[in-house]
Design a protein around this nucleic acid. Sequence first.
DNA 1: TTAGGGTTAG
Length: 456
Amino acid sequence: MVYILSSRLLNICIASFCKSKQLEKAEAVIIDGIRLGVLPDVVTYNTLIDAYCRFVSIDAAYSILARMREAGIIPDTITYNSLLAGAVRNCLLSQSLDLFEEMLQAGISPDVWTYNTLMHCFFKFGKPDEAYRVFRDIILNNLSPCPATFNILINGLCRNGYMDNAFGLFRNLQRHGFVPKLVTYNILINGLCKAGRLKAASTVLKELGESGLEPNAITYTTVMKCCFRSRKIQQGLEILSKMISKGYTFDGFAYCTVIAALVKTRKIKEANDCMERLLRNGIELDLVSYNTLIYLFCKEGKLEAAIKLLDEIEKGGMECDKYTHTIIIDGLCKVGNIEGAQRHLNYMNTMGFDSNLVAFNCMIDGLCKAGRIDYAMKFFESMEIKDSFTYTSLVQNLCRARRFRCASKVLLSCVKSGMKIFKSTQRAVLDGLYSTGYGSQARRFRSKIRLARLLH
DNA sequence: TTAGGGTTAG
């Protein structure tokens, strides 16, 4: 009895240290426990594995798993659930699937959490059909879906372009007695906002208010972002004020949303004021906050400050991501420093980032603006993946250089590949062809575009 | 386990 009690206490103590990211202290408690004759059990190792997955790395968690096995403790469903969640969080699809397979092979029964995580995994990787199959497996295996199951399902449908199905499911569940939680409302409001369905979003927001639940920082940030996206800047700023008064600006989310929106609408002074507020409030800066700061520097043309900050971030041990590098590459392009941008693109590759479509698009635009259109064309041809930004940028710059026939060819290949392009861009090509005496080519071009559209 | 923030065209 004494042993059970002390083992439980030990695990509570370890869980507390793990929760506050003090893994070394958690490990020290284990050593103390062993000294006192209390050996770590399956709960101890599961707690550690979960914490290592969250705060260190999945590999570190695997080494705990090895230690667990060496100690003769058999991993259970919770062990695998933690590892699986870690793999999904780190965007490791094949590793996630391997873990699930390994679990089945070892005869460890998956529970509803396992299936929830697996379903989330498939949605995250844009595989809604597989995700739905997992949902069916929950039922087929006689497990009961829990509220989170439905939240994951609604969220996954929203994110994979099935907004109607998500909304329909939400209403259906409500008819069957499902009481939405704040998470559910936030998922749905976010999905509706991103799909541009503002009226439905405001209906759900009203329902959230009537349900007696209190909107949280996430609700506010979601709605605020939606305001900025639909160019209601003043309304967005009013939401920020409300968030500040409610104490909802305890992290960088709201500030970063506002700063990026202000920068995009060229309100640099206001963006700087907001950034100062973020820095003054002592909020711990994460990578997104740093990226926003670098973005602000770049838009002010302060490239040296931006690169210096990037250097400091890396020296401080934080790993920059593709956003950081792309923002810098775009900044260098915008000030006409093409060589610098090219060097940074190479640096990004040496840092292990794969070819980045946005960075390439910035390069295309930068090269064109620097008058190196032929090089931009070569760059364009070497690109394996292109999007509407790639095409629009090149076509517009070709028009600016009055190379309308070349522009029409690029635009046609864009439409043929099923990509949408601004009507104004298309108009510029047509007008250019007419005004430079290529009337018959313009007419042919127009009918080819129509045909290409019909075929798509 | 599930919800919010950051990059490119006009």
